[in-house]
Amino acid sequence: MKYSGWPEKGDLVVGKVDEIEDFGVFVDLEEYEDKRGLVHVSNVASGWIKNVRDHVGVDERVVAKVLDVDESAQQIDLSLKDVNDHQRKEKIQDWKNEQKADNWMEQAFGDDVDAETYAAVANELLAEFGSMYDGFETAAVQGHEALAETDLSDAERDAVVEVARENVSVPYVTVAGYVNLRSPGSDGVDDVRSALEAAGGDNGTVPDEVDLEVTYVGAPEYRLRVQAPDYKTAESHLEAGVERAREAIETAGGTADFHRERRTHEG
C-alpha cells in the first residue's frame, strides 16, 4: 500500500534514487504515491563532497529524513546524512514488514480487492496497531480478540485472523511445573481426575493463544505445561492452572504440592 498523502517533517522515508545531479539527488518515495524528494548535495553526507556519485548510486534504495514539505510547490526536501545506521536498518525492516502485510492483505481479500475496501481495513489496522504488520502479528497471537475494538466486520476479522495464522511466525515460550496431588478418601482417584480436569481449564478459561497441557508423570506427580507468546502470560496461566487443581483437590479433602521448573524450549 502506498500513502496518497504527504510525509511530515521529521519522518524517515524509504526511497529509490532516480536521478543524480551535481547539486543533489532525486529520490522516488517508495511509501507514497507519485511523490519525489530532493536531497541537496549538502545533505548527502557529512563533510565536503567532491562527487555525489561517490556516495550514492542510481536505483540505490535509501532511507532519508524529511527536512521540509511544501505541498503547494510539490517539493519535499530530504537528508541522507541525518539518518544513522540504526535508524536506517530499523526503517528498512519496518518497510519490508509492511510489504509482507501488503501481500497478506491481498491473500485475505483477493488480488482484485477494491481500493475502498483495502483502505478501510488498512486504516483500521493502522489506527489500532500503528502498522498493518503489527495488526496481523497481534491477530496471529490473540485471534479475534485482537480485533474486537476495530470497526471491521466479522467477515473481515475472519479473513485477517485466518491469513495471519497461516503466515505470521509467532515466537512462543514454554514453562512447566509439577504438582503432586493426593486424596486419602475412597474416591481419591476420581478426586485427582477432577483436579486435573480443573487444572486444564474449560471453555473461556484459557485463551486461544495459550496452550495448557496436563500430563501424568508418575503417581502422585503430574506435569502442567504452558505455551504462550511471552513469559508473563505463560506463568500467569501456569499458576492459574495449579490453583484450580489445588482448589478442587482441597475441596475433596486432599492436598496439592506444587514445584516449578521453567523452560523456554522442550524436546
Rank of each mutant, 00 (worst) to 15 (best):
E8R: 15
E8G: 15
E8A: 14
K9D: 14
G10D: 12
G10K: 07
G10T: 08
L12F: 09
L12W: 01
V14H: 00
G15H: 00
V17Q: 01
V17T: 03
D18E: 14
E19Y: 13
E19F: 11
E19R: 15
I20L: 03
E21H: 15
D22Q: 13
G24S: 10
G24Y: 05
V25R: 02
V25K: 01
V25I: 09
F26H: 08
F26W: 13
D28H: 12
D28L: 11
E30P: 03
E31P: 07
Y32N: 07
E33Y: 08
D34H: 11
D34R: 14
K35V: 03
K35C: 09
G37P: 09
V39A: 02
H40K: 12
V41A: 04
V41D: 01
N43S: 12
A45F: 02
A45D: 12
A45M: 06
S46P: 09
W48I: 08
I49C: 07
K50T: 12
K50W: 14
N51I: 09
N51D: 14
D54V: 04
H55K: 15
G57L: 07
D59F: 09
D59P: 07
E60Q: 14
V62C: 05
V62D: 01
A64L: 01
K65S: 01
V66G: 00
D68H: 13
D68L: 07
V69G: 03
D70S: 07
D70V: 06
A73D: 11
A73C: 06
Q75W: 04
Q75H: 10
I76P: 01
L78H: 02
L78I: 05
L78F: 05
L78C: 06
S79D: 08
S79G: 09
L80V: 02
L80H: 01
L80D: 00
K81R: 11
D82T: 02
D82C: 01
V83F: 04
V83D: 02
N84Q: 02
N84V: 03
N84T: 03
D85N: 14
Q87V: 08
Q87A: 11
K89P: 03
K91M: 08
I92H: 05
I92G: 01
D94G: 10
D94A: 12
W95I: 06
K96I: 13
E98F: 06
E98M: 07
K100T: 13
A101K: 02
A101F: 05
D102H: 13
